[in-house]
Amino acid sequence: MSTALAGYALPVAMLLASNVFMTFAWYGHLAHPNRPLWAVVLVSWGIAFFEYCIAVPANRWGHAFYSAVELKTIQEVVTLLIFGVFSFVYLKEPPGWNHILGFGLIALGAGLVFQKW
């Protein structure tokens, strides 16, 4: 893999990984509604620490290849992809047609960010 290709791919891969952590930190507890809220907050905070350890370097290194707006857009699209899979697999909440269409429209809008007009 060329250095330039790695420079573009590594931040995206790191944002994917960090988002898995953040999705579990924010939404994983929904599968365990009987856990005390204080415990959920502490566990979520601990998980989020690892998300930050991946996301901050991803954005720092990625900024050499992407603008800040592009990095944020990548993060948002990644968030929707990871959350969609998480919601279906972990929370057992299948997506409706409106969810799929809405996510698709958001992804279409995100594609505009990467256009060089």
Rank of each mutant, 00 (worst) to 15 (best):
S2Q: 10
S2T: 12
S2F: 15
T3Y: 04
T3F: 13
G7A: 09
Y8V: 02
A9L: 14
A9F: 13
A9D: 11
A9G: 06
L10A: 10
A13T: 07
M14N: 05
L15S: 03
L16K: 00
A17Q: 06
S18N: 03
S18T: 10
N19S: 10
V20A: 05
V20M: 04
V20K: 03
F21N: 11
M22N: 14
T23L: 10
A25F: 06
A25R: 08
A25I: 12
Y27S: 13
Y27Q: 15
G28Q: 03
G28Y: 07
A31G: 12
A31S: 13
H32A: 01
N34Q: 00
R35F: 11
R35S: 06
P36R: 12
W38I: 14
A39G: 08
A39S: 08
V41K: 07
V41C: 02
L42Q: 09
W45V: 07
W45K: 00
G46R: 04
G46A: 12
I47S: 03
I47D: 09
A48F: 05
F49W: 15
F49V: 14
F50M: 06
E51W: 15
E51F: 15
Y52W: 15
Y52N: 15
I54C: 04
I54N: 03
I54G: 02
A55R: 11
V56Y: 08
N59R: 10
N59W: 06
W61L: 14
G62V: 00
H63L: 10
F65K: 01
F65A: 03
Y66M: 09
A68Q: 14
A68C: 07
V69L: 07
E70R: 11
L71I: 04
L71G: 02
K72M: 12
K72P: 07
T73G: 11
I74C: 01
I74R: 01
I74Q: 01
I74D: 05
E76P: 07
V77T: 05
V78N: 08
V78R: 05
T79S: 06
L80Q: 12
L80W: 13
L80M: 15
L80Y: 13
L81I: 01
V85R: 08
V85C: 04
V85Y: 11
S87G: 02
F88N: 04
Y90R: 12
Y90N: 03
Y90D: 13
L91Y: 14
L91C: 10
K92M: 11
K92R: 13
K92N: 12
E93S: 01
P94V: 10
N98Q: 14
N98P: 02
I100V: 13
I100S: 00
I100Q: 00
G102A: 07
F103T: 15
G104L: 02
G104F: 09
L105I: 15
I106G: 06
A107R: 01
A107H: 05
L108A: 09
L108R: 02
A110W: 03
G111F: 00
G111R: 10
G111Y: 02
W117Y: 15
W117M: 09
